[in-house]
């Protein structure tokens, strides 16, 4: 098969799949094409969409690729048809998810230790939304349940994989920068005063 044809097949599969497609799953369909080829054609396709300022784009999400609309065009979509959109997550939910995303697998007590408040209800809500899953029990007395984020979590936040999240160290560094700015400002003020 010619590259152009393979690319067209990949595009077709992306269009019809309805969920993020991993390179391996494409490989299952296009048996004779090797993985690296598929991957590079994915990139090419993605680039082509960008180049012709398409209303669609190919995003790398939840461990694969998927055809998606652009967020800036959401208004038009909503004008065309009623879109069922779930309400935004609450602050406690986001906080809890953030902790789990960075510290998974994690037990409830550890989450509550960081948040300083009971988190039972929030965790249950997130389990119901399939943003969290139970992945087992920790081997300590009481065998508490271990929680982790799901594929839906990646999909919801537009992440390819969990390591796409900015590192916590980056947050700390950002904050320390703030801190050092205020200190140096303070110092310069003292300098002027003296």
């Amino acid at each position: 098969m010619e590259d152009a044809e393979i690319k067209a097949v990949i595009e077709t599969l992306l269009f019809i799949s309805g969920e993020s497609l991993s390179v391996n799953r494409i490989k299952n369909v296009l048996e004779d094409v090797d993985l690296s080829k598929i991957k590079s054609l994915f990139w090419e396709l993605q680039h082509e969409y960008e180049m012709r300022s398409s209303g669609l784009r190919i995003v790398e999400i939840a461990g694969g690729f998927q055809i998606a609309t652009r967020p800036e065009f959401a208004g038009w979509i909503k004008k065309l048809k009623k879109v069922k959109q779930s309400s935004k997550l609450s602050r406690p939910s986001l906080e809890t998810l953030a902790i789990i995303a960075y510290k998974q697998p994690i037990v409830k007590a550890e989450i509550e230790d960081i948040r300083g408040v009971d988190s039972t209800g929030v965790i249950k809500g997130l389990l119901d939304k399939h943003l969290l899953k139970i992945i087992g029990r920790k081997d300590v007395p009481g065998r508490p349940i271990l929680y982790a984020t799901t594929r839906e979590f990646l999909q919801y936040f537009g992440l390819r994989e969990i390591s796409d999240l900015p590192t916590l160290k980056e947050f700390t560094e950002l904050m320390e920068e703030d801190e050092s700015i205020t200190t140096s400002e303070a110092q310069s003020i003292t300098a002027i005063e003296s």
Binding site: A74, R91, A98, I99, Y156, L168, M175
Partner: peptide, 23 residues
Amino acid sequence: RKFKEAAEDLCEREDIWRDVFYP
């Protein structure tokens, strides 16, 4: 505070990605 910042980051992502639709 670290996780509060991380939650804000997730919130920004949510704002963008809930406006993305798939076939």
